[in-house]
Design a protein around this nucleic acid. Sequence first.
DNA 1: CCTATTGGGGAACGATCGTTTCCTAATCAA
DNA 2: TTGATTAGGAAACGATCGTTCCCCAATAGG
Lengths: 202, 202
Amino acid sequence: MDINTAMRPPGRPREFEIEEALDKAIVVFSERGYHAASISGLKDAMGLAAGSLYKAFKDKKAIFLASFDRYKQVRNALLDQELAEGANGRDKVSRMLRFYAEASHGVSGRRGCLVVGTAIELAVYDTEAAERVGRSMARSEALFDTLIREGQADGSIPAAIDPAATARLLLSVTQGLRVLGKTGPNRDRAFSVVDTAMKLLD
Amino acid sequence: MDINTAMRPPGRPREFEIEEALDKAIVVFSERGYHAASISGLKDAMGLAAGSLYKAFKDKKAIFLASFDRYKQVRNALLDQELAEGANGRDKVSRMLRFYAEASHGVSGRRGCLVVGTAIELAVYDTEAAERVGRSMARSEALFDTLIREGQADGSIPAAIDPAATARLLLSVTQGLRVLGKTGPNRDRAFSVVDTAMKLLD
DNA sequence: CCTATTGGGGAACGATCGTTTCCTAATCAA
DNA sequence: TTGATTAGGAAACGATCGTTCCCCAATAGG
């Protein structure tokens, strides 16, 4: 097998970066939702002709799932980067909550979260969408759980706290923030929720 | 003005109960969302012909807004009834949280909340929808605030709690529960969130 | 060079969307 | 009974949906 030689595939090379196009699609899907996002609107936003879109993706759902995966990849990377700067478990939990609060107001708040949107609009009738949402939620919940245990180990979070139960609550809070952000509460109100939630770790 | 005499309007009388039809529409809109709910699907669920639907409602959005209002009316009545049985402020907060947890699992969880769905799918681009969502959220937040203050007055909730901030957090929790309920966590997990949230009132 | 293969782009497709029209049925006022 | 008004229901409408087709451009291999 060729591993080092990056051979070019046959045929005309693609003229656009697929990830750049997906970043545009993410905005459309996030703001409008899956069903209200038309191929016409997507191709305009992505700067492609309908034919080219269908060369790159099987169908509308494939565009959506690729956008979802790209969205998760980018958001996860940003979150990991934020968590890496945390001083201890408690600080990391706080940073994670603030990460969601920051996304839940203003322009990005009104744009909305693709995971929440997918849960609401698609998960019930689409298995692939439901799996992705489930995995995303489970990952966040597990991450909160891990960070809480980390805090208990380093002494920044009391041992009496129930990590699993508290992780579930914090997951609930973040998803709720994303919903509230759609009708645009201001920044202070979003961060007030974070401050209050952190009292659970006292 | 005639107050006691309920005069019948001219023309052929309507053969169906508008509120019963709306209850069917609520199920369709909740499960599928606004855009994926077709007139064809709505008329089947409501047991009406398309023509009759448009005699009763101006357009699809009018059907939706009427469904939303009916949904809020029914849910508010159920919640008020539940709260009336509360022994004190703390118990009422707990009952309100459990009211949402009960709706956030199983069939009704997967069906989803019309308020959350409207916030996600419609609020950004539709003023009337956004107003309704905003009013609903504000009402819930104010209710939590009132119940917390009531608890502080009757001694069931410590005076040190910040009612406004805690109300915002609890609103966040309930909306988050509704999102999580879409991918169907079981009953125990939903109620575990309630138990953990109640620790904020200790 | 020629052939095979893939991408870009626009026109066209059938299906379905929300809505209107049209005809009949049922009610009230006169 | 007649006229006005509204509801029930089916058929039809134009618009838009997601998707495919077709033609040309660009690349690789022979």
